[in-house]
Design a protein around this nucleic acid. Sequence first.
DNA 1: GAACTTAGTAAATAGATAATACTAAGTGGG
DNA 2: CCCACTTAGTATTATCTATTTACTAAGTTC
Lengths: 400, 400
Amino acid sequence: MSTSFQQHRGGDLPFLKRLNRSAILEMVRRTPGLTRADISSQAQLTKATVGGCVQSLLHQGWLREGELQKSSGGRPGRALHLNNDRHVLLGAEVGVHGLRLVACNLSGQVLESHHEHFIPTTPEATAERLGDLLGGLTRAPSVTGRRCLGLGVTLPGPIAPGEPVLRLAPNLGWRDIRFLELMRSHLPGLEGTWLMDNEANSAAFGEIYFRTDRIPESLMYVSAGTGIGSGMVEGNHPPMMTRGIQGLAGEIGHTVLQPGGLYCHCGNRGCAETLVSGWSIRAALGIAEEEDLIQALRPRLNETEVQLTLRRAGEALGILLLNLHHTLNPSEIVLGGSLTPLGAPLLDPALAYFEANQNRLLGTPRQIPLRVIEDYSFVAARGAAAQVLASVIHHSDELI
Amino acid sequence: MSTSFQQHRGGDLPFLKRLNRSAILEMVRRTPGLTRADISSQAQLTKATVGGCVQSLLHQGWLREGELQKSSGGRPGRALHLNNDRHVLLGAEVGVHGLRLVACNLSGQVLESHHEHFIPTTPEATAERLGDLLGGLTRAPSVTGRRCLGLGVTLPGPIAPGEPVLRLAPNLGWRDIRFLELMRSHLPGLEGTWLMDNEANSAAFGEIYFRTDRIPESLMYVSAGTGIGSGMVEGNHPPMMTRGIQGLAGEIGHTVLQPGGLYCHCGNRGCAETLVSGWSIRAALGIAEEEDLIQALRPRLNETEVQLTLRRAGEALGILLLNLHHTLNPSEIVLGGSLTPLGAPLLDPALAYFEANQNRLLGTPRQIPLRVIEDYSFVAARGAAAQVLASVIHHSDELI
DNA sequence: GAACTTAGTAAATAGATAATACTAAGTGGG
DNA sequence: CCCACTTAGTATTATCTATTTACTAAGTTC
């Protein structure tokens, strides 16, 4: 899961076994309904090997057998699916204005979710409250009885690569917090893999990991909220994300778009966040921190000052997206975050700029899919749950 | 080597064998002088397994035994090194103003190199000339007799991920060129792995791959020449690079730094290249395409117009570097390309801006190493040779 | 020089996938 | 309805790889 320096390691036979087990589970996860024969041909393993692996995965409750496939002239194969009844994944997001929690099954379907307005004060108090809420979630009828595979927590700031430390959360005033450790005492019985990550990273991961059709080669999630962040996920088996040596990868809110421009809270001038972010829009339109930004703006959308501010912010967002296109060139871009409910006045200029300029270099008609997420609310928490599953499948011995 | 969508595959016993062979070879490559016992403890393989692998790698001429290590109370181990006498790697760079070729040994030491001023006209003529020069290189005394592992060619533009097609070379006027195919007929006897990549990608790869101490977790190479490009390499075993779905990753010359700024040749406004690039400096100072930019500028460095132009370009470069820092956060940045010989008037403002602003977010004193390459000339060609070696080690059956 | 320590090798063992042969369960033609 | 044919999946045996165990090699230390 981390980008930290990997020492060279050899592999023994159990390693090979784990590898094949996780490959088979991933295949069924990505294309539900696969038969053993399909797996055998795709994975380049013999029928016998696949049969053995599948049997043990069935036995352990990871897979279940489904209907018979249509015959193509011979004995029909038996469809295989994830067994969604046995396990649960927990994910939580600590946001600037609230806590969000989800419990998912292996397919990423949300079994239970909870949202609570909550202004994080100290890390300790936040951990306690979040622990309580998670405890409640695990006692929900749809969750009890399932085996918990772990917990993923997202935080609004850069995470140190390699160890679970929040380096900084500018909008919470936190610095160097080992948040998982703070939560341990409040969730003593919760087993499985615990991990934490940046909100945009987790969101990006979840958006690519739980998909079962037209899986992009890479995906970038841009989170436009109080600040602006992004997460990039690439590849498969397992998807990898770039964190950067200090966890700063994706801190696109502090890329400079306007040299010599306004001062940012980071001290530099002309950062993207001075042009497009919850805080810069509040500053430009005089909206207090305590008010809900969306609710404050909705009645004022006819004011020219508001329209102008949102249009300028949208144009800056468009430039930001284009710069990412020319820096990372993801296969798909997903736009989320608490500013997205502002809709067209903010987003149309961004999408228009991106579409107008994305093909200038190559001149091809191909358009990179750019999607505004319908409901951004539980994306990060669900993504953290996805990271837990990936970690279990690829880096644990659960499958043996 | 490519970022294209990987189908899930299982692994069989020969796969495991290849994996361990390549892991051992990589370990010795990265830390020359390792003993079998060192490898055994680091790779988590038993002494017997390591002994067997090493024996066959010695037998095939990949490794050689060296001196005895100093004893630490018992029998001293025998140092292992790459055998640099048996193989050769070929790399070539097709530049806007010339062709550069290298022949390297396994450690990346240049056995033979050649530079020729050459303005590429058609792809066919360029391929023919490059083929002739490479043929000459292979007949050099230091090269003949060695087994050729392959050829890597770099080109100044985005390469399609997954297949060896140059999508576009704006400064050559080329589009959708299968350059390797054009070269085949001129190098009929040349065996091994053939590959091609973008110049900055190959340079980045070479800068990280041949290093033997303090190997960074990731490295970004920024190439400032006629245009501006970058390449990012991450991880190890093997190092991976981001190409993007259209090969546009790293096209930082077309990130927008000055919304509403000057028109770029791509048709957009305010691209980084309009502020810092060979062509924009030429345009600003009225230097013709035929003149050598460095030679034309050197006598004029006292002119205020020149100083101002270079300082502004340098500041833009500094912003570009900072934006990359906040987007990818590489462990190390290397600056190369044909503009670097301009030295302080261009580079000082860039380095100063980067250093002044890189720690604003986290507030830590840590400085990301930013190095201007001493001699940029054969970096890309040597990097392409490095890619050949990595491809052989990780994706071929040569080691068995 | 004897005890000890570490490096490396040889032979037997365990455990993984592959190969082969088999059974299971459909289709379709007569 | 039967039978040839096709494909899915399982059982058994074989092969291959790494490990385990025992051993030899070659130093240091007292």
